[in-house]
Amino acid sequence: MPHDHSDHSHGPDHPHTLLPPEPALRVRALETLLERKGLVDPAALDAIIDTYENRIGPRGGAQVVARAWTEPEFRAALLEDATAAVADMGLYGRQGEHIVAVENTGTVHNMVVCTLCSCYPWPLLGIPPGWYKSDAYRARAVREPRKVLAEFGVTLPRETAVRVWDSTAEVRYLVVPRRPEGAEGLDKEALAALVTRDSMIGCGLAVNP
């Protein structure tokens, strides 16, 4: 058990207090210890960081949205079984094992939060932004989503209902924002450039061309 008060043979209940308090030193101490015990390869850590810094990020999700805007069959497949639809584009992976796509319309605006931790569709959007992991967003998005949206500069008409998805399980939600007016002649690449990360969390709108 991770938190067993009956067993003191392993020292304090919270062994992390044995590490230096300063976070940068904590990381270094943990990495060094695990490396010396043969449990962590620093080159593997570099590879993980490279993946989320350079290979996986919100441009993946933007490609998905641009296809949904332009290919009716893909849009239907995405709304039916997003996990399979995005896997066909090579966007399956850790923290994206079960994807559901939710589409914004004139009557419903979708917004995603994880009040319990910070669940987020990594293969489609990368590592969550700082605000998504903040206490303020986690506390407020479910109770006053419209005030939170206003802090992102988004004001919805009263006839649009807000549906906030609290990611309490292993299902990860991708918001398909509304396609902006005036984007008719654009190809998929140009359309994807209009799709911001925040619009795929539901805290923004796709930008106008």
């Binding site: 989503p145 419209r146 009263r158 209902a161 609290d166 309490t168 299902v171």
Partner: peptide
């Protein structure tokens, strides 16, 4: 905030 708003949980 709005009578039509919803929260969805898994």
């Amino acid at each position: 905030e709005h009578p039509g708003d919803e929260v969805v949980l898994d």
